[in-house]
Design a protein around this nucleic acid. Structure first.
Lengths: 202, 202
DNA sequence: TCATGGGAAGTGAGTACTTACTCACCAGTG
DNA sequence: CACTGGTGAGTAAGTACTCACTTCCCATGA
């Protein structure tokens, strides 16, 4: 039973949450305000009390998702300790965990990009910029220290992120699982392993 | 000036082409039959002479795109010659070239997956299955031969494809370019390089 | 060569339904 | 009481698709 009357703030939050789920499954044009209203358990007109337009609701959702930025708390200690594998492993794990924790995240990221949404770029950056900056800086330092081959740190970063992202795409968008023994943990270990060995100075 | 009257076959082909472009930019629900008709230069009713429904048109497009399967002509000679770098380089180049040759390809792949289209799985497989099979088999052979570390060939394959796919995603969907010196050629070489070194037996 | 018929391609107008949003009013709470 | 949250009914525009008809083209026969 949905509570009949909430504060404006609370109702907004509820609408955003329900709509995020729908938008992530059907995209902007594929989601009707009627569906959103039903999911929330209110009248369609109520949505428009809180958001002037459907567009404004979508933008509010993207902004909310972008707000939950990737925080690199876990990888910093490993970086300080010069624990290469620890850095990579933690980054990969955190990226994967974020997506698992919020199933709408990746789908909304891709839907908004495909739809050419004005906030798409900001959304993407909120998800990847910190990881990119952190890892490319770390790789650059390790190269300067002679531990890694000298390659472009950005490119190397993209290569690593690419492995993680593809892993997520296969599962979240394309419903691929692979052989049963390929757990996420094993997948992460192999990514870390192939990448680390690949960038080491021979 | 659009020719006023074409054979049924030719008109179908023309509609599919114009609609593919629109669907790849706006998705299914975001593309109206009116827009398609205008892009083709015919009356809306004409579309429905050739396709019973909008859905049928979309399916025809996906099927057409799936038909242009990845053909692995280039990598086979390199595989025979045991030219590891050649195999990987050729695969990456061909994947990238395909997407560049048809800008609708990747966008339609992702739109249809996000939209949960019944043909999405088939579409995905048409694009990746052969590369996956080919490369995982090749990697398996190289592992058996002692040249590569023993890891799961599927996982290793996904890691490599992930790097290529992310490169494409950044450019085709997210409009990212990276530093100017990062040409596609350089990117491919680094992917091949990090991967090869990463899977070599230490 | 020309005329005719049939089949297929194509159109303008319209239909029925869908969709985002508004309006006038009601209900709840401090 | 005043303000804010919420509703049922409705509106205007959008959308996929149909209908009744026209046009074109090719094959055939005279």
């Amino acid at each position: 039973m949905v509570k009949a009357r909430l504060s404006g703030q609370e109702r907004r939050r509820q609408i955003i949450e329900a709509a995020a789920d729908l938008f992530s499954r059907k995209g902007f044009r594929g989601t009707t305000t009627r569906q959103v209203a039903e999911a929330v358990g209110v009248c369609e007109a109520t949505l428009f009390k809180h958001f002037a337009t459907k567009e404004e609701l979508y933008a509010a959702i993207i902004e909310a998702k972008a707000q939950t930025q990737e925080i690199l708390t876990g990888a910093v200690p490993a970086a300080r300790a010069g624990d290469d594998a620890g850095v990579l492993r933690t980054l990969a794990r955190e990226m994967i965990a974020r997506v698992k924790a919020d199933p709408t995240l990746m789908r909304l990221l891709f839907f908004s990009a495909l739809e050419g949404h004005v906030l798409s770029d900001m959304f993407f950056r909120s998800r990847f910029q910190q990881v990119e900056d952190f890892l490319s800086r770390y790789l650059g330092e390790r190269m300067a220290a002679g531990a890694f081959r000298t390659v472009d740190p950005i490119q190397a970063t993209w290569n690593f992120i690419g492995m993680v992202a593809y892993h997520l795409l296969l599962r979240e968008l394309f419903g691929r699982k692979g052989p049963a023994h390929l757990t996420t943990e094993r997948a992460v270990e192999e990514m870390v392993s192939v990448f680390l060995q690949g960038v080491r100075r021979p």
